[in-house]
Amino acid sequence: MPQNKKEGLFFTTIVCFSMVISMSAYNLLLHGQFSLSNLFGGLVPGFIVAFIFDVLVVSSPAKKIAFALPVNKEKNIQMIIAVSSCMVLGMVFFMSMYGVIMQFGFTENFLSYYIGSFTKNLIMALPLQLLIVGPICRMILKMSRQSSWLKETNN
Rank of each mutant, 00 (worst) to 15 (best):
G41Y: 05
M124P: 11
A66H: 02
I101P: 10
Q3D: 15
V92Q: 03
I52G: 04
I132K: 00
I48Q: 08
V57P: 07
A62C: 08
E108M: 03
Q103A: 08
F118N: 05
T119M: 12
M19H: 05
S24D: 15
V71A: 02
V133W: 02
I115L: 09
F11G: 09
A82G: 10
N155G: 09
Q146P: 11
F17R: 05
L141C: 02
S35R: 04
F110Y: 06
S24H: 05
F34D: 02
N72R: 14
A66I: 01
Y113D: 10
I123A: 13
L126F: 08
L39I: 09
V100P: 03
V92E: 09
V100D: 09
L43E: 09
S59F: 14
M143A: 13
S85K: 05
L36K: 11
E108T: 08
M139P: 10
N155R: 15
F10L: 00
I123N: 06
L89R: 06
M91I: 12
S85V: 03
T153P: 05
Y113N: 02
S24E: 15
V71I: 06
M124A: 07
S60N: 15
Q33C: 10
G116W: 04
L111V: 12
M87T: 03
F106E: 15
A66E: 00
R138T: 11
M79S: 09
F51I: 12
L43P: 04
K75I: 06
F17I: 03
E108L: 02
S85A: 07
M91S: 02
N76G: 14
V20R: 06
A62P: 02
R145T: 11
L128E: 09
Q146R: 14
Y114W: 05
M23F: 08
C16V: 09
N72E: 13
M102K: 07
E152H: 07
M95Q: 00
T153W: 09
L43Q: 09
M143P: 13
K151A: 04
I14F: 00
V83G: 06
N154I: 15
I77Q: 15
V49L: 14
T119H: 14
